[in-house]
Amino acid sequence: MSKIHVTTTVNGDATEFLCDPRETLLDVLRDRLSLTGAKEGCGTGDCGACSVTVDGRLISSCLMLAAEAEGKEIGTVEGIATGEELHPLQRKFIEHAALQCGVCTPGILVAVKNLLERDPDPTEQQVRYWLAGNLCRCTGYDKIIRAVMDAAAEMRGAA
């Protein structure tokens, strides 16, 4: 089957790739662009491990065809830190031990960063509902929520 040529931006870098019409954005990020931070936990939009942003909107990259990325700006976990410097959310996740195995962490970081860009001062309940599409089997979410609230407070203070 002939491949489709796609021009896009990933974490600020202009990027081109060829893909099969059936490949998902997640397949291409991982298998063609070597961005394996996004994980496939289910492939059906139920776990959030593949969360990325497309033009600033949070999506499950397993549900989007790669060809649809034409002209779009993609954000993945690899783009959250600025060079060596971790994003406050990343620092707080380590500090609060908000990860155990860490396989859900990339998707959760992408999701909560997107939340804080929309609402820098969410309530605990808002964070819990925003994250309801991101499964974590290890932590019971307690420390994740605390890390998000703490990072949000720090970011508000810094702003």
């Binding site: 961005l35 931070g37 959250i80 971790l86 996740f93 380590i94």
Partner: peptide, 9 residues
Amino acid sequence: DGIDKVTGR
């Protein structure tokens, strides 16, 4: 292994 796990590495 914290940094590896929050950066996708």
